[in-house]
Design a protein around this nucleic acid. Sequence first.
DNA 1: CAGTGGTCTAGACCACTGG
DNA 2: CAGTGGTCTAGACCACTGC
Lengths: 268, 268
Amino acid sequence: MTASNTTPNNASQLGQSSAADGSGGLSAPAFSPLYQQIKAQILQSLQNAEWQPGDVIPSEFDLAARFGVSQGTVRKAIDELASENLLVRKQGKGTFVATHAEHQVQYRFLRLHPDVGTVQSEGPAERQIIWCRRVRATAEIAKLLGLRTAEPLIHVRRVLRLGGVPTICEDMWLPAGPFKGLTVEQLSSYPGAMYSLFESTFGVRMVRAEERIKATTPDTETAALLDVATQTPLLNVERIAYTYNNLPMELRRALYRTDTHHYKNELN
Amino acid sequence: MTASNTTPNNASQLGQSSAADGSGGLSAPAFSPLYQQIKAQILQSLQNAEWQPGDVIPSEFDLAARFGVSQGTVRKAIDELASENLLVRKQGKGTFVATHAEHQVQYRFLRLHPDVGTVQSEGPAERQIIWCRRVRATAEIAKLLGLRTAEPLIHVRRVLRLGGVPTICEDMWLPAGPFKGLTVEQLSSYPGAMYSLFESTFGVRMVRAEERIKATTPDTETAALLDVATQTPLLNVERIAYTYNNLPMELRRALYRTDTHHYKNELN
DNA sequence: CAGTGGTCTAGACCACTGG
DNA sequence: CAGTGGTCTAGACCACTGC
């Protein structure tokens, strides 16, 4: 009785998700293990906002019962989601939906760190919104965000001061639809990180990002904002941030001063 | 008979490794699960060069028998080592010691990619060794490499051409001891990546690296090597590469041209 | 076909949290 | 104390490789 498996193998009552699964190829039947299907189910619940950021999700045994699999299988699914920073496990307490609002890390995607030996204990960044405008997508921006040219966008420009020094000047482009109603007042008064605001107010959770870095010099306007000469070499960091389903939701083009800070990257 | 566990719990015949374990704190007894101890044992075999890069290691069942644990426990240990890129699993074939000589990825730690739309299919980089000298460590370099000031080093300077264009100029400092006998001829004639040479010829396997990026302009000598004006903004990438045990074994300071390439980083 | 890694189960017990 | 995640086992079967 006990030693026989539940089903011969692949997909039975568990419908394979229909949307893009990123496999690309189309020849192979593409065997998908049970835990991957469970993972897709959990992901679906996250996308559907069935569980909110910060919430506890059901226990491993509950989920196992719900999906009709063993706890170990659910565990493996959650393991992967946790390693992708979509879920956070806390022993003895439960498994939680990850959130940008965790006070521990203010800027999860910011890789700019103060040089050691120079200014330290600089505290939180001071943020200054330069503007927040409605614009239309250029062909270039539309392509990067997966939109059509001339679709409405919100364009935000801001400066961050670290340790009192203007260090970062960034432009952000957001699709107007999901961010309808975003105002300078919100951006200025919100106490947490910008992605935390997006999460709580607009239900858009940034999950992953890609950055492309070049060296450049600022135009006169940006040079003034950063209080540097126009020939000062700066890092040009272009970021595309993605929400669930690899959907790009933000384009950000930032200039970093690197006289007292550096961009840190770990290579494995 | 079967349902009782092997040992009440922690460390029994498995001696906890003596060297630095990175735990830092000293108050807690620091419970260490079995699979972590197995992982440490396997790591030890890797450091002792008991298994060479590219070799197969014993099967999960063999290792389980050797360590007196179940296959699942060995599996979890190998899982972590594989996720750290120290081992590579190949279904149906075995588990292999990772190597920099895999033809698939020529430069595992190089994050500079050609811009899309510009020059493509640029093929392998052309390497040009500018010099290879014996020097003594400055205080700064000694600190970064965990050495004492004035310890002997090998200083290599080279230029990489991508798609025919001189794009990277880098200086490397290596401790003279482990790299005794490194010559310009070796560096010039070796067909693979530099870390592959280190691995096969000197038994030094780079496992992990940290990079700190700033924007700068080149001095006249470097500007000439890269064929750019001295006011051209460039990426300054300072890398410390580590072998097993978090031992720093290389300091590298590179300047990247970013007119047709960019430094790519994935944020999770 | 045998050998390897990969999946899945069922059940036991441990470590941690909070009422 | 009960409930959660974390570890460990023993055993079954699947998918892939290569002889």
